[in-house]
Design a protein around this nucleic acid. Structure first.
Lengths: 194, 194
DNA sequence: ATTATGACATACAATCTGTATGTTTTTGAC
DNA sequence: GTCAAAAACATACAGATTGTATGTCATAAT
């Protein structure tokens, strides 16, 4: 009755089953309120499998997060419009990011649970891997044409936080248009040459 | 050998002992990694006392948070400078807030653990009780003199998020001046009439 | 075919949380 | 001042959770 699957296939199958089940539960109930017995039950595996593939619950959570962050990166990048003037590219990317973050559960995982479970440092590192880095590069691209410059790294962090709050608010049911408008306004004002 | 303390004194004493011990441990190790046996040991009480005064661990955490939020409110308000023009008052209050948030542990409690433990909704409610409300009122005060208006509620949320990130970054060791500069720049640009 | 390795499965020890049930102070009436 | 009621604890306990240790079975390597 055995399927005669290769080890690679077995690993792949149980890992993704665990990641999907864990993601759903972490989104629904949060990290702390989700138990490993629940996760393995949903994934139809045993705890032995979990602890074979991940060092602990936190490690599983980290894997879920990295996967999610990569999905965000992919989706925003996919919406990339090449050969736009820097400032327009920045504004365009802003909306793409908010759109990518509107996938259910994403804000809770990346913006709420992540920092608490992994600590602000590691969470910031994950953010810096793409969203924050992209934003910073966008700001650098327009900074050249500004009269009085500003601390780019700091401003990147501040705008990044604003983006995240906008995503969070939209996910919580706030009016998307209002937040998109406010966010665009913010970026426009900051990057205005005047 | 009994001290013959009144019930009010007893309650007050153990409650503050618990709140102080809990605060220190929550700051040091986070909410999840702090156990109630640890807390009561540090406070020199028993778990019975804890569960007599608070319904559960989360309730104790909530009490710690509200205390901390009130301290922030008090400190920023104390630095209040009456009869300043609205825009100057806003800028002045901005720095006061960042200053108040620089008390060790405050960012971790209010900005990291809080949202994760209580959920973004309740955490936002605590924020709205003073910092966000103050900011919104400040924005409303200057909004009148702006050419094209913006969604004030949304903009309040975004700037509030930026403030919090600045506070967090400074607490993590980033250059305070850079972040204060960037933050002031942000507020100035948004509230600029042009 | 046989052995080694990877992929699990099961059992266990240590904790932790919340509750239930005692015990000791205070308090309030008499 | 005495005594009952209530508040303020203290102790014991049940249930659940985490990580580990150990055992088993499928796959891979020789």
């Amino acid at each position: 009755m055995q399927q005669r699957r290769s080890n690679l296939e077995r690993t792949e199958a149980t890992r993704t089953a665990l990641l999907q089940a864990a993601r759903a539960l972490f989104v629904e109930k949060g990290y702390a309120e989700t138990s490993t017995p629940e996760i393995v039950a949903a994934a139809r595996v045993t705890r032995g499998a979990l602890y074979h593939h991940f060092t602990d619950k936190r490690d599983l959570f980290l894997a879920v997060l990295e996967r999610e962050a990569q999905a965000v990166a992919g989706e925003t990048e996919a919406s990339g419009s090449p050969d736009l003037p820097p400032r327009d590219a920045l504004l365009h990317g802003s909306l793409a990011y908010l759109n990518a973050m509107s996938v259910p559960g994403r804000t809770r995982l990346l913006l709420i649970e992540g920092p608490a479970v992994l600590g602000p440092r590691q969470a910031a590192a994950i953010d810096e891997a793409h969203p924050a880095r992209t934003l910073r590069e966008g700001l650098e691209a327009v900074a050249g044409s500004l009269r009085d410059p500003f601390p780019i790294a700091a401003m990147t962090a501040l705008l990044s936080a604003a983006f995240d709050r906008a995503a969070l608010a939209i996910a919580e049911g706030a009016d998307p248009v209002a937040f998109e408008t406010a966010m665009i306004r913010l970026v426009e004002r900051v990057t205005a040459s005047g």
